[in-house]
């Protein structure tokens, strides 16, 4: 008998779970601030100004915060979308994993590059 192949699902589920915490605790507030309160003028005049946002991403805690939010949101949502394909009758298999986890990985690397490796 061939030994059973170890599943890689726990890795993706862990990222999905961590992303779920970000999506449920932080995402509603962030979406409201950047997508609604800011354009509708509910915040102060200097809110999210270029200078203040530059200071945020130049600080390690600020850059780490944005990196964690962007990356984990992607791992969370890509995992969910990949599994939802089955629910709508699409058998994506390995191809689905490559595409959706690949997108999450590309987004994670892009976030890391622009937050940590780009001179400001």
């Amino acid at each position: 008998m061939k030994p059973m192949k170890r599943s890689n699902e726990p890795i993706f589920w862990s990222l999905f779970g961590a992303g779920g915490v970000v999506a449920s605790l932080v995402a509603p507030a962030l979406v409201f601030i950047t997508g609604l309160a800011l354009p509708l003028g509910l915040l102060g005049p200097d809110a999210l100004s270029y200078e203040r946002m530059l200071a945020l991403v130049s600080s390690l805690p600020g850059a780490l915060f944005l990196f964690v939010v962007i990356s984990l949101l992607l791992w969370h949502t890509m995992h969910r979308i990949n599994h939802s394909l089955h629910d709508i009758g699409i058998k994506a298999g390995l191809g689905g994993k490559v595409i959706f986890y690949g997108l999450a990985l590309v987004g994670t690397m892009a976030a890391a590059y622009f937050l940590f490796a780009t001179p400001l």
């Binding site: 995402a27 962030l30 979406v31 950047t34 944005l66 962007i70 949101l73 992607l74 949502t77």
Partner: peptide, 8 residues
């Protein structure tokens, strides 16, 4: 939510 990650 994936779209929002893209916006960020």
């Amino acid at each position: 939510l994936a779209g929002y990650a893209g916006v960020l």
